[in-house]
Every structure is written in C-alpha cells, then in structure tokens.
C-alpha cells in the first residue's frame, strides 16, 4: 500500500474513532439530525478548505481567507438588497467578489514577487478593513440588517434536513478531486508545490497557476460566505473570523502536506469533517471554546509531527536500509 493510501486510512480512522467515542458516550451523536447538522457545519469550513487545499498543494498559503469571507459576506448582503435581483445572481456576485480578492493576492505574489505568507497576511487585514468600512451603518455604528431577498434566502433552506450548502460542498469536492488528480492544472499545481524549479524546467507556467489557485480559493471563500449568509439571513462583522486557520488545520489534519506538492480534495473534506466533529462533540460534553482551541492545537501538532515521522519512514530514497555487514557496535571499539 502506498504511503498516500496509508495516510488516507489514518484520516478515515480518526473520523471513525472519534465518531465511535461520541456514539458510545452520548446518545445524541448517531442520529440523522445530528449527522446532517454536522455535514452542514463542515460544509462551511469544507468549502474554504477546498480552496485552501489548492493553494497549499501549490506550495503557498492563503492567510486572507477569513478576510475574504468577511468582505464577501458584506458584498453578498449588499447585493441581496438590490431590488429584483435573483438569488443565484447574488451568489454569483459574491463568488466574483471572492475571486477578485484572490486575483489581487495572486497578482501581488506573482508580479511583485512578495512572499505568499506576507502578502495574504496583509491583504487579509485589507479585506477585513474593507468589510468593516462597507458594512451597513446607522449613526456610524454597524448594525445587523435582516436580509429580505427571499429568493436568495432560499439557498439556506434544506431538503428534509439536507442543507443546500452540504450538497454544493460535496459536488464541488468531487469536481476538485477530478481537477486535482486528472487535469494538467492539478498536476502542475502539485509539481509547483513539490519542486518549483523542476516544474519551471518542464514548462509549467508558474504565474498562471498561482493566480488561478488564489482566485479559486477566493471564489470558494465567496461561495462559502454566500451560503452561510443565506442560512443566517444576515451577515456579521465576525463572519469568517479565524476561518483561514480552520481551513489550514483541516487540510493538515486531512493529510495535505503543508509545504505543498501533495494532497487532494478528499483529504481537505475529511479534515474539515474531523475538525467540525471535534467542535460539535465537545459542545455536547459542555466544554468551552477554550478547550476547542486546545484540542485544535493538539491535533495539528500531533498530525504534523506524525507526517514528518511518517515521510521519513516511507521516503525510500533517503532512508538507507540496514547494511548486511553491520559495523561493530560502538561499545566494542571504545577504549
């Protein structure tokens, strides 16, 4: 079995183990209602994780994802107030807003040659700032506005418990899985993340792929924002807060190599589902947000460390197997 498959089994195993623990210790875990809720909650992180996965696999990082979600939330709310605009158009506008943010990131990174870390750290503040400035205000104070565009709000509905955001998430995950594993774009993204120099030597167009990655990530953030706003029928200043870290964590836990070059959509989805399970499960035990954060931190450190050890064990080229003629033991030659 290849190392990728082993890693996948571990991700799935984690989800099952946690699910079993919850099932055995609480009565309310393994119910249709709960599972559907879980899927809805994971879809929000999950959509952003799909975009984040693309950026991370390409060797980058997008710390502005949370900012994009926040700004897109405002854009979405504003768009929904335009008289007569259909719900689908609101969603498309929000996605475009997200993609535009991504385009900005991509252009700065590729044309000004700034590091992705710094660029997106800064642009995250810019997007959040823009969101605060453009939000609805009365007397200079932001106020929550109840959205009234019913066509748009219907995107927050569910079919007997199965939310539209879940359906969208799963459909896009399948699409991204194909894009990442079966298209040139996906292949080149992996190649860039694994070994930029070699990829360039093979004729991979770095700038295009980088920009496309950031734009896709922004678009996913926009879509996630639109779906959540539709569900909540309102947007808040804290929408998207810390979501970039949620998404990065989900990718790492799911098995996407944080330094790039390896991973797929399924990994991002498993990671997002696992992280959401941790949160919701701890809520059931009545534990505070503080404990959630501790758990997140612990899970990430454990998984990254595990991956580091794991790659050392399976990287055939670097680990030399024990030689036939073993050298004498240290103790035998000491004076």
């Amino acid at each position: 079995m290849s190392s990728t498959n082993i890693r996948r089994c571990i991700s799935i195993g984690l989800v099952i183990a946690l699910g079993l623990t919850y099932t055995l210790t609480t009565d309310s875990f393994l119910t249709t209602f709960n599972i559907l809720q879980l899927l809805k909650d994971s879809a929000y992180t999950g959509l952003i994780s799909l975009g984040m996965a693309l950026v991370i696999i390409g060797g980058g990082i997008d710390l502005s994802a949370g900012g994009i979600v926040c700004l897109c939330g405002v854009a979405c709310a504003r768009a929904s107030f335009i008289p007569g605009v259909p719900g689908i158009a609101v969603i498309l506008i929000t996605i475009l807003a997200g993609a535009a943010c991504g385009l900005f990131n991509g252009l700065v990174v590729t044309k000004l040659h700034l590091s992705e870390f710094v660029t997106t750290l800064a642009s995250g503040f810019v997007f959040s700032g823009l969101a605060l400035i453009t939000t609805f205000k009365t007397d200079g104070r932001p106020v929550p506005m109840k959205l009234t565009n019913l066509d748009f709000i219907s995107f927050g509905y569910n079919y007997s418990g199965l939310y539209k955001i879940t359906i969208v998430w799963i459909a896009l995950a399948v699409l991204m899985q194909v894009v990442l594993t079966r298209t040139r774009f996906g292949l080149y993204t992996c190649a860039l993340g694994a070994n930029e120099k070699s990829a360039l030597m093979s004729g991979v167009k770095k700038d295009r792929i980088k920009i496309a990655g950031f734009m896709a990530c922004g678009a996913f953030c926009g879509l996630a924002a639109a779906m959540v706003v539709a569900f909540q029928t309102a947007t808040t200043q804290t929408l998207g807060n810390m979501m970039e870290f949620q998404a990065i964590s989900a990718c790492v836990v799911g098995g996407i190599v944080i330094t790039g070059g390896k991973g797929d959509a399924l990994a991002a989805c498993l990671g997002a589902f696992f992280m959401t399970m941790v949160t919701s499960g701890l809520l059931k035990y009545g534990l505070s947000t503080g404990v959630h954060y501790l758990m997140y931190g612990a899970v990430i450190v454990i998984m990254i460390n595990f991956d580091a050890q794991f790659s050392r064990l399976t990287d055939g080229g670097r680990v030399r197997k024990t030689k036939k003629n073993e050298p004498p033991r240290l103790s035998e030659v000491q004076p």
Binding site: T183, R184, C190, A191, N195, K197, V204, V257
Partner: peptide
C-alpha cells in the same frame, strides 16, 4: 535530479507534455 517527488513515474515522464482528452489527462 529534477523530478517531482510527489508525482508518479509516468506523471513525471510526461510532465509538461501530457496527453489529454476533454481536458482530462
């Protein structure tokens, strides 16, 4: 060596010159 470690042998050998159909490799 200029190989991409995370790709397969075949993917490396065709890197940059993939054969595709309907945009799928």
């Amino acid at each position: 060596l200029s190989l991409i470690q995370t790709l397969t042998v075949a993917q490396n050998i065709f890197l940059g010159q993939e054969r595709t159909k309907f945009r799928l490799t």
